[in-house]
């Protein structure tokens, strides 16, 4: 059955492999060059490579996934496959598992090159969302999740292209939700409050040499002293002047002036808080997010098996 799976999905796997090799070559070129020269063209090329790395797991996962179910049902070849001597469940798993493994290996290889590349271009710590998304183990999770969503969509909709669009939009939506809502909480946030509360405080006094080195900045603003988040029901206030109509000078320039605190923050009993995920939490977040996508993939495959066993063809 491994041969069957390979033969049915050969074209998709070869295309994925080709794109992976192309991306690896492009990363090798743009990653090495950035160490010496840094021109606009290199930046453009890096952006292009990043776009490919960003899209590849979802696109390839969806294409492989809908091929397993929707294409068979659209072309009625499942009527051939499902009347042979094996059950529908075994047929689905036997055709799916080999491509899932092959695709995962391809994604793991490309993301390990990407992890080197992200460090080589040296623009930001890899915990930054755009770099986080293309490195580590999450690309494998994205691939498996999108593939399972494609399989599920193909179990519901008979049209390959429609199932593909549904699964693609669903997978992109899932990635956006996880990235913005779930990922910040996958490891305990670090709060930084007292550093800025004093005369002459600026970002440059933050340990590690400034804001970018902190890590992935999640929230910042003025909150009541003793808290690391706003009062329930209140937004984050980026400037004191926005707080309760309290008359304050706008924070300007390179740093926080002493007067800001004496005039506004102290009477109002506010302090400035920064919530962030430090670079050291990279693997915690990677493992958590990849785990979410793999678990969702398993659930989607289970649901697809349930639906396919019940479906009338």
């Amino acid at each position: 059955m491994t041969w069957v799976s390979w033969r049915l999905h050969r074209t998709q796997l070869l295309i994925i492999g080709t794109l992976a090799v192309l991306a690896a070559v492009a990363m090798a070129m743009t990653g090495v060059r950035s160490t010496s020269t840094s021109s606009l063209a290199v930046h453009d090329a890096q952006a292009l490579v990043w776009g490919l790395l960003f899209a590849l797991p979802v696109a390839s996962g969806v294409v492989v996934g809908v091929t397993v179910t929707a294409r068979e049902r659209e072309r009625f070849t499942n009527r051939l496959a499902w009347t042979q001597g094996i059950s529908r469940t075994r047929w689905l798993l036997a055709t799916l598992v080999p491509v899932a493994v092959a695709g995962s290996v391809a994604m793991a290889l490309i993301s390990s090159v990407a992890s080197w590349w992200v460090a080589a271009i040296g623009q930001a710590p890899r915990i930054y969302p755009n770099l986080f998304d293309v490195s580590g183990v999450v690309p494998v999770g994205y691939f498996l999740g999108s593939m399972a969503l494609g399989v599920l969509a193909g179990a519901v909709f008979r049209s390959e292209s429609f199932a593909g669009w549904v699964a693609g939009i669903g997978a992109v939506a899932a990635r956006i939700v996880v990235r913005t809502v779930v990922r910040p909480h996958l490891a305990p946030m670090v709060h930084l409050a007292p550093v800025l509360n004093g005369p002459g405080s600026t970002w440059s006094t933050v340990p590690g040499g400034g804001e970018p080195a902190l890590g992935w900045l999640l929230n910042q603003g003025w909150v009541p002293v003793g808290r690391t988040t706003p009062l329930p029901g209140h937004p984050w206030f980026s400037s004191l002047s926005a707080f309760n109509g309290y008359r304050c000078p706008v924070v300007t320039g390179s740093g926080f002036r002493n007067s800001v605190y004496s005039d506004c923050a102290d009477p109002a009993r506010l302090h400035f808080v920064v919530n962030y995920q430090p670079p050291s939490h990279y693997w915690l977040l990677q493992a958590g997010e990849a785990g979410i996508f793999v678990a969702a993939a398993a659930a989607a495959i289970g649901l697809a098996v349930f639906l396919l066993r019940r479906s009338s063809e």
Binding site: R75, F76, T77, R79
Partner: peptide
């Protein structure tokens, strides 16, 4: 049991 569908589905 062998079955041949009326559309004779095969992998093109």
């Amino acid at each position: 049991v062998g079955y041949v569908d009326q559309v004779r589905p095969l992998y093109r």
